[in-house]
Design a protein around this nucleic acid. Structure first.
Lengths: 186, 186
DNA sequence: GGTTTTTTAGGACATTTGTCCAGTAAAAAG
DNA sequence: CTTTTTACTGGACAAATGTCCTAAAAAACC
């Protein structure tokens, strides 16, 4: 987590050591849930090792994957974290996972400890926004097949690490249709 | 614009008067473009009066509406503003529109002028994130018909003020299909 | 290593959504 | 007010995508 902060802002190691008292740790077994819908999300996790996926359930009861997070990335129900309303997502480990955790209280302390942390928070939020925006654009501009193609060309990691059933709903299509698309591409 | 800032943070009128030197004004005629794709967006606008829409063009040359902004709302290609890369959106006035403008330099001054502005910036970014997240969820969870239904029930304003052709691509469907949906709903 | 469970692929058919188009209604321009 | 342009609706058909299902492959478990 420190590395990420340092890449955004020039923190001294003294400044970063502030984190030592604020971060906690947790491990998850494959399949285990970190957050369930209707809970308020009050922590942001950073993945040291493993993979997480966030998903919600539609009116038919199907699980729809919202996003994945890999090593050295953050994950949370950011919407719930920000608004303090109940999350509509569940967050689940897709592999045995080791996490660093920053809860709301800890983050508040960081923000209060100075200008630089405020700015870091804003910049990280901006980056999350930009990621989400890209995803939104891909849903508006591209077909399911084109989104798969994009993943295939630029995010091989997804295809290697994620079961296709999860990938399908992430792409906004059914597993049946993803199978068709894969046949056409290969 | 001041009202919005005040609703987020308790600014004194002295603090807010800082804005007087930083905000500029502009009017747009109906149909006029505020930003075109491949420009870098370096200003955030606040709508005093009027309506804006942001749209991009897909590989077939169709215009796809990305979002709308109404009175007392902000608009920009936030992604371009943040990353300083070329925007993929165009921003256009759907009616004669009066704007307050905060450019990047002005915003930087605000941020540098203190903690409170930093925090305000972060919170506004968070709110934009939450809005975008809601939209993303509606694309993953709902059908075009359900998205229309939601608009019909909770955002009557859209139906009153926005030509259906723009609404269609905003909902992720064709005008032909929107017409079918409307027939079924009414 | 063998058994059970989960995941993936793909056939057959149904439904949804898009394409192309023409007629009408509505709005903008002169 | 009349003309011209633009926006909206809906028919007929085509293409894309979903549903349901079965068999094979892969992974997890004992």
């Amino acid at each position: 987590m420190k590395t990420i902060f340092q890449s955004i802002q020039d923190f001294s190691s003294a400044e970063l050591s502030l984190l030592d008292d604020l971060i906690t740790f947790r491990t998850l077994k494959k399949g285990e849930l970190l957050l369930t819908e209707n809970e308020v999300c009050n922590e942001i996790v950073f993945i040291e090792k493993g993979i997480l996926r966030s998903f919600f359930v539609n009116h038919k009861g199907d699980e729809i994957t919202n996003c994945f997070a890999f090593e050295n990335e953050f994950m949370a129900s950011f919407a719930s974290f920000i608004t303090e309303e109940k999350a509509e997502e569940n967050i689940q480990a897709l592999a045995n996972t080791k996490l660093q955790i920053l809860n709301k209280k800890a983050l508040k302390k960081l923000y209060e400890s100075g200008f630089k942390w405020q700015e870091t928070g804003r910049k990280l939020t901006e980056l999350e926004f930009v990621n989400l925006h890209k995803r939104m654009v891909s849903f508006q501009k591209l077909s399911g097949a084109q989104r798969y193609q994009e993943l295939y060309e630029n995010h091989q990691k997804y295809l290697q690490l994620i079961p296709l059933q999860y990938l399908a709903s992430y792409l906004g299509i059914t597993p049946r249709h993803l199978s068709r698309i894969r046949k056409a591409v290969v």
